[in-house]
Design a protein around this nucleic acid. Structure first.
Lengths: 339, 339
DNA sequence: CTGAAAGCGCTTACAG
DNA sequence: CTGAAAGCGCTTACAG
């Protein structure tokens, strides 16, 4: 070596090991600076059995909800010199498994996951090996994982209250997938709140997809039991719903009121501006990384779970009074008081 | 080993080396299946000096243009068992350098980059080492890289022709960054086409940012020289422009017509639906990966460059006739014929 | 066709 | 405090 010291000493200096004499330290530092030497991360990884990488597992990074999340994770990772591996699962348990196996093998420092399969055995495998896992949006089954969750139930409740308060009684939820926690919670709280008001919940399964929502809302609008209000359970389905509404020349909120989960930038640009339930995605993602980094540095061993409230952004799409023509339409079956 | 063969033979079988006897091959295969053995990628990387990863370098994955691109890249990578490292540069040459250095050190298989700094020396360093680089959206200076480019000039020309054909003479381009190739090309072709029509191009520098566009369009709408039409050079700036337009209660297309680059899903949901210049992002990204994979497999050595046309999606925002009130407003300075 | 051996470039007990 | 040595787990010339 240029510094005329052993590779061991160089390694110690570069890794901030205390036990190096000032003279040696300086000599090494100078040589490193001059040569622009940087240790080979491949060799380091093999030796230490960990990569300087964070795995991010989401269903689809094209969903702005997740691209915002990934962006926030990446920001935090960058300043610490960590890389980010993106893994799209498309809500497939198989893809999740394949990716998590990879992340295990690659010995990533940690994983942030919005699980498609909360019970995936690989999640426990990571935890077994000491690799921290933070669940995002949706819990995982293994209790050792941290979790950053949005309060889906409260949000669904707020949506119903808002609409019922405006006089609506026939409200359809364009629901997400029931086998996905956020979808299930929004659905469940919607049903409970409707029933608490003596109203019959109506459900359209939109699968969290643009096209399913589009087709479903088309059918609803064409049917004889058209509701007076819609709650749409995520931004993708809102696109499908709005497309169907536009094509059917149905007016919002006069013919049908709308409250939508998620608050993409365009929500206030459509006509009318959308009343939305906004998640603090950036803050949640930053917190997820904070939790992960605490674990990576070994600073905490107790699992932590934080719940973040949605924010109701009241705009015009929910209307301010009962929708015009509510009475004119065939009324829904009489309200029942089932649980 | 369970199969009672040497590690060398196992390695050969797993890597599809021909020169292994059928008996050995079978024996190894069986042991591998039984044990679920998978070679350690860290060790393999150190030995072979390459990682099974693709680097994707973009300015911001939160921009739907890039999240769509990253998604397509990831799809192709997944089926081949490659990982994807996402790198956000925020149009910073420094961040690009830092990330490319990392990608060099990590010995990635290849890089898809929408360069913030097309002249970055690390691009050549990658190429020197034999790591293929595909430029996306924007060229890089090193001629050895492949490139997948959209025809920005033709698109800007089409936007102007469309508006001029509808009778507009006072048209402002909400421009992207001039130091970014796509921004510069759109700007340049806008100016040329305007001048070819004897019209004076007006430019508002929107920096490809929501807020800059917002503030700028606010000023334009409040000013006395308000144009009759706007061309907006990307989807982020369109959000800013629409926000300003909405707040000023300016009607589209009656008071001001609009043509926007990019075609996000919400473009047809705003009122009026947006006339857009859509890039075939998915196709371009898939092609970029194709080019990269050809290089990785050593199947091609000549650099290739493909140019993809935009598609004009004509909707209502561009109007069909001269905007109402064009004559009523103070006219622009007389058209000059400078080139 | 198969195996023994070297080596990728680090880090980290272990001596001194 | 410093260095020599081992070893992370593969792959790949090199022998045979």
């Amino acid at each position: 070596m240029r510094a005329e010291v052993s590779p061991a000493t160089v390694s110690r200096v570069l890794n901030g090991d205390q036990a190096v004499g000032a003279t040696y330290r300086r000599r090494v530092q100078r040589a490193v600076d001059e040569l622009g030497y940087r240790p080979n991360p491949l060799a380091r990884s093999l030796r230490t059995q960990r990569t300087q990488a964070i795995g991010v597992v989401v269903s689809d990074i094209e969903n702005p909800h997740f691209s915002e999340m990934v962006r926030a994770v990446e920001d935090e990772a960058y300043v610490r010199g960590y890389r980010v591996l993106v893994c799209n699962t498309d809500e497939s348990a198989d893809k999740q498994r394949a990716y998590l196996e990879t992340l295990v093998e690659e010995r990533v420092l940690g994983v942030v996951i919005s699980p498609s399969d909360p019970a995936g055995a690989e999640i426990s495998e990571l935890l077994d090996r000491g690799t921290p896992v933070v669940a995002f949006d949706r819990e995982v089954d293994d209790p050792r994982a941290d979790a950053v969750i949005a309060d889906n139930r409260a949000a669904a409740r707020a949506a119903v209250e808002l609409l019922v308060g405006a006089g609506h009684r026939e409200i359809t939820l364009v629901s997400g997938r029931r086998d996905v926690e956020s979808g299930a919670e929004r659905l469940d709280a919607f049903e409970l709140t409707m029933r608490a008001h003596g109203l019959e919940p109506r459900i359209l399964d939109g699968e969290f997809r643009v096209d399913t929502s589009y087709v479903g809302v088309q059918a609803i609008l064409a049917g004889s039991q058209r509701p007076t209000a819609l709650v749409v359970a995520n931004n993708l389905m809102t696109i499908g719903a709005l497309r169907a509404i536009r094509e059917a020349s149905v007016r919002v909120p006069q013919d049908i009121a709308l409250v939508a989960f998620d608050d993409p930038a365009w929500a206030e640009l459509v006509d009318p501006p959308l009343t939305t339930l906004a998640q603090p995605v950036r803050r949640m993602a930053t917190e997820a990384m904070q939790l992960l980094l605490e674990r990576i540095s070994g600073g905490r061993t107790e699992p932590r779970r934080t719940v973040h409230p949605f924010e109701v952004r009241r705009r015009a799409s929910c209307g301010t009074a009962p929708a015009v023509g509510v009475e004119a339409r065939p009324s829904a079956p009489p309200a029942r008081r089932s649980s």
